[in-house]
Amino acid sequence: MNIEVRGLTKAFGPITAVTDLSFEVEAGSVTGFLGPNGAGKSTTMRMMLGLVAPASGTATFGGDRYADLPHPSATVGAVLDSAGFHPAHTARDHLRVYARMGGYGTARVNQVADLTGVSAFAGRTTRILSTGMRQRLSLATALLGDPQVLLLDEPSNGLDPEGIAWLRYFLRELAADGRTILISSHVLGKIEHMADHVVVIRDGRLVTTGPVTGLYGSATVLVRCAQADRFAAELMESGVQVERPRPDLLRIHGLSTAQVATAAASHGVTLREITREQPTLEQVFLHLTGGSR
């Protein structure tokens, strides 16, 4: 089921949270929804789910707005940071209430509890659950209707490394089942190995969208040499883009290691070190969202 977001716009008083945001999420893909804190990720997801009314624009799942879906909780599951639990409810009570609401049986409550590891603490009141347990319970609730689409708003926030590892593994399993997953994050590392696509926003506007591989851009070559001054000047003269992060270090854009080595030899420059440098997704992300800051 494709997700289509068209021209979503929302302001809270004088603060514009999201401006004319459009993107698509392909069925069966895992898409990272990236942006720094305050970029408008949560607001966008809430608008997609009909919790927040957009000033303009629409979001559809397979052509239908969330509220118009024939069976919303069986189509789209959402884990939102703002969702809470009644403190006097046990984890199981919470699942039972929403299983009733969606028309799912007790068997399904047990299934999702087993699947997410909630079974281990199903009898505890939600008041005393740890962040990790709460996140599992949220996931279990979202999975009650076995939805094909999942919207996850910073699901790894507040989790310890173990929790994050579990979550990654779990989401990979869900993705392997062919689910469409949109997962937001303000850091790329958490979803780097999962997402096929990314949607990057900043200040409520789209920065870029596309396959993850496209984000990497071209590699650079890092060289350390004694005559850095002269080499940099020679390269720039021939139209090559060169950065100089340290006095003896050059970052050369647009040339392969072989081309750099050849150029060095022809200029009589002695290389002490030569490395091909692939920027991390994190760097790309910072570059894209950091702009001129």
Binding site: L51, P72, F85, H86
Partner: peptide, 22 residues
């Protein structure tokens, strides 16, 4: 008011997005 206080209102509305129904 407890739905608002404990923020279960989010999940409740997700499960019944036509809000008047719940």
């Amino acid at each position: 008011s407890s739905e608002y206080r404990h923020r279960t209102i989010t999940t409740t509305t997700l499960f019944a997005p036509r809000r008047w129904t719940w």
